[in-house]
Design a protein around this nucleic acid. Structure first.
Lengths: 193, 193
DNA sequence: AAAATGACCAAATGATCAAAATGGTCAAAC
DNA sequence: GTTTGACCATTTTGATCATTTGGTCATTTT
């Protein structure tokens, strides 16, 4: 029994390692089996196929991401602080997390369907997380009532644009500038008081 | 002389037609020459190469787009009305203008460098146009002083997200809803009054 | 003389298809 | 009951060859 759990863990680690290094498509089951020191057939006793194994890994990544945000947020913070911290931490994975980096690259360059799907599910997790923050903000009277999913969607797009797209043509913005821009555009608005 | 001008015009029309139908890469100079009823060499007496001809066509498109916005905007309108109308008209090209549609598709599917470049230049035109509207808004005291390029960039990203990305997972938003969202998020802000 | 042309060329692209690699299976080994 | 790797059908790769392409320029047309 101990051995079984260990084997599963070995496979998971080997697959994560290989996906991080070569991406989804370029990682072969043989490769994973070899790295995990396990027969190829063994992998199929734990996972129906390559895609299920992939989904399991992403599911763990999503859990980890949520936990990472939970660790730096609490309900004493203002709406603005919570939203800013959550977005920053979650988007940080795009620049710092090897697997995430590789998957984004693969989506752009190869368009692998399984990868597109998985990235979509990660984005949805981010939106769902933001939705809870937004709903609390509404309940506390910190922000106006609004369509939570739509607001979450816009905030995510805004941060992605500021962190990743703006840099393509301009000098990068730092954390504090981006945080201030969220406040300026989404919270306060451009209308003079 | 009349003949020369006519020839140039024929080439331009033939090329525009072919680019609109097949995209940049899949359009051949032979094809353009044939449609224009012109020898292949003739094209090269007017344009240095395929890319210059392409640039000329895009330059005309950009002129046309600016004129289209000029026609529906005047300085009596509020900042919000001007920004909304300009963004809508300019982004309408993405759904209604055959050449624009084909180029966006080619960029996504083939990533043709010349096409990327050209799309970038169209986006920059949009941002430049918005910048003038924003600057006027600041001068008139309609909106707070702000970084005009950055504000234009954000407004463009917001509209693109609302018009094109939101639909992928949700029921499309109509013109008025999008206009109201620009007001809510960027002008008024979410902070309760 | 000036403008227009299309045969021509080097380079890029596409088609072909045999060999290699891949995801997944399953009878045998443990 | 687990684990395994030889095995299979299918997909992917890459070497090779044929076609097409952007661009030139000597010749023809006006």
């Amino acid at each position: 029994m101990i051995v079984t759990i260990d084997r599963k863990q070995q496979i998971l680690e080997a697959a994560t390692h290989s996906f991080s290094l070569f991406g989804y498509k370029a990682t072969t089951i043989d490769q994973i089996a070899k790295i995990a020191n396990v027969g190829k057939g063994t992998i199929y006793t734990f996972y129906k196929n390559k895609e299920q194994l992939f989904h399991q890994i992403i599911s763990l990544l999503i859990q980890e991401m949520k936990a990472a945000v939970d660790a730096i947020i609490n309900d004493d913070l203002t709406f603005h602080e919570k939203a800013d911290r959550a977005l920053f931490k979650l988007l940080e994975y795009r620049t710092d997390h090897q697997l995430m980096i590789k998957l984004l690259q693969e989506e752009k360059e190869l368009g692998t369907p399984a990868v597109k799907e998985v990235i979509q599910s990660i984005e949805q997790m981010i939106i769902d997380y933001l939705k809870t923050i937004i709903q609390k903000g509404i309940d506390e009277g910190e922000i106006k009532p609004c369509h939570t999913e739509l607001t979450a969607f816009i905030m995510l797009k805004l941060y992605v644009a500021l962190i990743f797209d703006w840099d393509e043509q301009h000098k990068p913005l730092d954390k504090d500038e981006i945080s201030a821009l969220l406040k300026l555009y989404v919270l306060d608005g451009l209308t003079p008081s």
